[in-house]
């Protein structure tokens, strides 16, 4: 399968990329790792006339921990996060998620920025980012703006990124006290999209009371969703089995899965309930360790 014809552009600076995007307008698509876009182009679900490849632009693939946040350049590969000990020691959720995202070859080229900018609720990283309370930096020719991840996903393949803009960086706050995070999904086979997936991030105070809970759900809603009622059910409590069961029940009630080849909606709600239980327990265990 070969994509429809298009013109390929490889800018070597961000300014060059913005110039191209303003000249080419909505005929242009931005190419990051290409592991979502190129398969769609081969199937002719996408037929952009121009591709602007960010691969040759320096400065988009750095990872740093400063000013209380983890900063991840938009072109950082999934595999680079998976193998970065500084990142995974604080955020083992990236090890959990990476193992479940496609396969090693895809993770060598798929990027975190591309994963988010694709705007697909079936991708795993959106739920992870929702749980961690991330924000994304979106840049255009004139300025940079920061968008809270809660305001980033608009709809199916639609995000806050406007014409002429590029997602350049992702920031994740590193909590000062005790915290833990975890992700898992049910998949039919390795590399498949999630039947359902759950990301949990918890913060605890010194007496073990939960001060923040973030819970993101994968592929059980038209957009990546936060289980807000479940989060509220954990905050202010010393999390015990009853609180976990209540939060898990709420997540299963609040998600909106559709019936498809991966299962009917009733089954998917059960998947979400079971995974939410397990991931809260795992994040809690990591926070207490």
């Amino acid at each position: 399968m070969i994509p429809a014809n298009f013109d390929y552009h490889a800018p070597s600076t961000l300014d060059e990329a913005f110039k191209l995007l303003s000249e080419l307008g909505d005929e242009a698509k931005i190419l990051a790792g290409g592991h979502s876009l190129i398969p769609m182009m081969k199937l002719r679900f996408a037929e952009p006339e121009h591709l602007v490849d960010l691969g040759g632009i320096p400065g988009l693939n750095t990872v740093s921990m400063e000013n209380g946040s983890l900063h991840i350049g938009a072109m950082v590969k999934e595999a680079e996060l998976e193998h970065n000990a500084e990142v995974t020691s604080k955020f083992p959720i990236f090890t959990d998620a990476a193992k479940l995202i496609a396969d090693p070859q895809v993770r060598n080229f798929g990027t975190l920025g591309g994963n988010l900018a694709h705007g697909d609720a079936a991708n795993d990283q959106p739920a992870v980012m929702l749980a961690l309370g991330a924000s994304v930096e979106i840049t255009n020719a004139e300025e940079k703006r920061t968008v809270d991840i809660n305001d980033f996903f608009y709809g199916f393949y639609m995000t806050a990124i406007q014409e002429g803009e590029i997602l350049t960086n992702i920031s994740i706050p590193v909590p000062a006290g005790k915290f833990g995070n975890a992700y898992s999904k049910i998949e039919r086979k390795v590399g498949d999209y999630a039947t359902g997936g759950v990301a949990v991030a918890l913060e605890l105070d010194d007496s073990g009371v939960c001060t923040r809970a973030g819970i993101g759900l994968t592929n059980v809603n038209p957009t990546p969703m936060r289980a807000e009622r479940s989060e509220a059910a954990l905050v202010g409590k010393v999390i015990d089995a009853a609180a976990i069961a209540e939060a898990a029940q709420m997540a299963s009630e609040d998600c909106n899965p559709s019936d498809d080849l991966r299962g009917d909606s009733d089954y998917k709600r059960r998947v979400i309930r079971s995974l939410t239980k397990k991931m809260i327990a795992k994040a809690l265990e990591r926070a207490q360790a």
Binding site: G34, H35, I38, Q105, N108, F109
Partner: peptide
């Protein structure tokens, strides 16, 4: 780095 060459454009590896 191992890669699936059916999902990468030749121009990307210039």
């Amino acid at each position: 780095k191992s890669a699936k060459s059916c999902t990468i454009l030749a121009v990307q590896v210039n």
